[in-house]
């Protein structure tokens, strides 16, 4: 058999890389560049450079609030998703009857468009929603509807609903990749169920869950449809950016500057997070 010449194989490699490279430059690098340039232009102009949009936003007293709110919502919902998925996945992995059904159900929040999910949640948790009707009927102290919609805890609840599948899928796969003998060895050694969980299972799946939670955090940080529909006065960064475009005339440069700040925060947070994760697990 004739081996391909080095030039030929290089050509083939380039050819195979080209779709990836094209989409990287066309769909990521170019829009990124446009956003950066735009954020540095005076509003509505194609020439000149200015840091005005960054300074204005960061000087606004609301800026800190918006950034803190964005972090609170995304971190809290990531934590809630982790706390929720661990017990659920521990049950699901035992492959009890109907576990397939629950595995599918778990993914519903990702299948339903966020906007429709948000509307549904608003109806469910509203003052005349089923949740409040139920609470008022059953819990003795609750005589009037609990305000859930348009509050921070309510938003965290909605976020958790939407982003929970990211965490539960990675948690389940991490759990299922765990060798059953590892746990059996612990229980033979004298550990009861709780001790096996605490000393063996959780330490071993934690790196996997934390790595998976990056995905949840990223998605929650950029959440748009849920806070837009269900956020009320609470506007995280993504909604804040959108609002700049909603003005007439649209403030594109201001929006781009905010987008750059959001990206920088996200990258910064991730860098720190990944560095912490990569520390050798003791």
């Amino acid at each position: 058999m004739r081996r391909g010449s080095p030039i030929r194989s290089t050509l083939i490699t380039l050819l195979m890389l080209s779709p990836g490279l094209a989409s990287f430059f066309g769909l990521f690098f170019y829009p990124m560049l446009v956003t950066i340039v735009r954020s540095l232009r005076p509003e509505g102009q194609q020439v000149g450079w200015t840091l005005q949009h960054y300074i204005t936003f960061l000087r606004e007293p609301r800026a800190r609030e918006v950034i803190i709110l964005t972090f609170v919502l995304s971190i809290a919902s990531t934590l809630c998703s982790m706390l929720l998925s661990l017990p659920l996945c521990l049950v699901l992995r035992q492959k009890l009857r109907g576990h397939r059904f629950f595995r599918l159900t778990m993914l519903i929040p990702r299948v339903v468009p966020g906007l429709i999910g948000a509307l549904g949640l608003l109806l469910l948790f509203g003052s005349r929603g089923w949740v409040n009707l139920f609470l008022m009927q059953v819990v003795p102290f609750i005589n009037e509807p609990v305000r859930i919609n348009y509050t921070v805890p309510g938003l965290i609840l909605f976020y958790t609903w939407l982003y929970f599948p990211f965490t539960s899928v990675t948690t389940l796969s991490t759990l299922e990749s765990l060798d059953p003998a590892i746990e059996e060895a612990a229980s033979v050694s004298g550990a009861n169920r709780w001790q096996v969980l605490r000393h063996v299972v959780i330490p071993l799946i934690m790196p996997g869950i934390l790595a998976g939670s990056v995905l949840t955090f990223m998605a929650a940080f950029g959440a748009f449809s849920i806070p837009l529909v269900a956020g009320g006065n609470y506007r995280p960064l993504a909604v804040e950016i959108y609002r700049q475009i909603d003005f007439t005339p649209a403030r594109w440069s201001a929006a781009c500057a905010r987008a750059m700040i959001m990206a920088a925060l996200q990258v910064g947070f991730l860098t720190v997070y990944m560095r912490v994760l990569r520390r050798p697990v003791a």
Binding site: D179, A181, I182, E184, A185, A186, V200, P203, L204, V281, A282
Partner: peptide, 10 residues
């Protein structure tokens, strides 16, 4: 004693 040792890797 297990076939695949089953030591606790952490």
């Amino acid at each position: 004693v297990f076939q695949n040792y089953a030591l606790w890797p952490h």
